[in-house]
Write a protein that binds this DNA or RNA. Structure first.
Lengths: 226, 226
DNA sequence: ACCTGAACACCGTTCAAGT
DNA sequence: ACCTGAACACCGTTCAAGT
């Protein structure tokens, strides 16, 4: 075994202004995306930043404040369609897909939002845009508000569902297990489940299009009003 | 100060068969509903059962296994409409409302599901029933499968949204803060948000009906197909 | 002002021991 | 077989101290 080599980087005292809120948030998001929500630890975050654990506390009150800031920052990165067309429905679709994409690309951010109350001013720009588009599509003020909540609910639920599904599927042999369990079911108790087994199985492979399929039906249901 | 009174119940050794999986799950659910997911601790669970921390490990492999069992058990308690009517849409509505009710009545169960992959055989009875009703409503096999996923996504998302909203609202002065923030917004950047402020505010009070409003529109969108 | 290590009160779980 | 306490490797955070 080597002797002169220091084994665990004996980090020197970091220079005075290595840290700032932005650098910390960048590292937090990277950590969350790479290792998942349960690995998002003050100690891990500090190590990723090459700094003592307590250094972070000079810039944020604690872990909760960092989590809030991460959520805020991610929600602000949702890209909105730039041009105003005369197709509010198409634009609405785009906005919803943007939100959905954000959550599926940052699954741990979603988990983060799911485990703490939403602050009121999250994603103001997105909400404003959705409301405007719903009104332009002909909805009353009240229906626009209800519709936007509905779309957000469906989108959050879909992202949650997809990411959980993805996590489950990447475990060893879950696929085969699910199939086996399905075909072992008593046919008299679960007739529809059995007869739709083929569709249920192949449904697992089409997560991407699934969100859009439902989205289109929701938009249709929203606008087929008087 | 009293002297002869033992201050912290100096629990005697528990008799041999005080514990069993069912009693443990009951206590776990009670604990989750009463104190929330973050208070759901092996030590707290054991204390609620009047037993040493490690006693629970004789019946479950660990906390994860208990969490899975809790989720399973709750999902099995969803009540399905008993009689088969000739109104598949009405029944479908009932089933969805049952799922929604379960999640809003056991918010921590939802958090639990959100933070771990779904096991495949959760809620088989519910899924089978939904599929059957969708087919009876005239949908093809593939559309029934897609429709059931869509309904579950919307329902899970709604429950998550509502419970988070509720948690936020019961915090001190969040209401006033939200209103203040809303009216302090630059009107040129968020025109729709500003002009719909009244609707947005009063929307906060109508969480219950909100789910059903969207549900009806989803069902309409699902069935207005060829 | 900003960064540090030691210490505190937690957590899930392992382990050897009691009955 | 079932229940136990001590111990281990974690966690977020407080605190007094360095620079």
């Amino acid at each position: 075994m080597s002797v002169s080599q220091p084994v665990r980087s004996p980090r020197r005292r970091a220079p005075r202004n290595t840290l700032n809120p932005d650098r910390i948030l960048d590292a937090a998001i990277a950590l969350l995306d790479r290792d998942g929500a349960e690995a998002f630890t003050m100690r891990a975050l500090a190590e990723q930043l090459g700094v003592g654990t307590m250094a972070v506390y000079s810039h944020f009150r604690g872990k909760d404040e960092i989590s809030d800031a991460v959520a805020q920052r991610l929600l602000d990165t949702i890209e909105l369609p730039h041009t105003e067309t005369d197709d509010p429905l198409g634009e609405l679709r785009e906005v919803c897909l943007g939100v959905y994409r954000l959550f599926t690309e940052h699954p741990s951010a979603l988990q983060l939002l799911a485990s703490r109350p939403l602050r009121g001013d999250d994603a103001m720009a997105v909400i404003d845009r959705m409301l405007a588009l719903l009104r332009r599509a002909g909805l009353s003020g009240g229906d626009a508000v209800r519709g936007h909540v509905m779309l957000m609910r469906y989108t959050v639920g879909s992202a949650l569902w997809s990411t959980q599904r993805d996590r489950a599927l990447c475990e060893e042999g879950v696929r085969e297990q699910a199939l086996a369990r399905l075909s072992a079911l008593p046919a008299d108790r679960y007739p529809s489940l059995i007869s739709l087994a083929p569709e249920l199985i192949c449904a697992q492979d089409d997560e991407g299009g699934r969100y859009e399929w439902g989205l289109d039906r929701i938009l249709r249901g929203l606008l087929s009003d008087g």
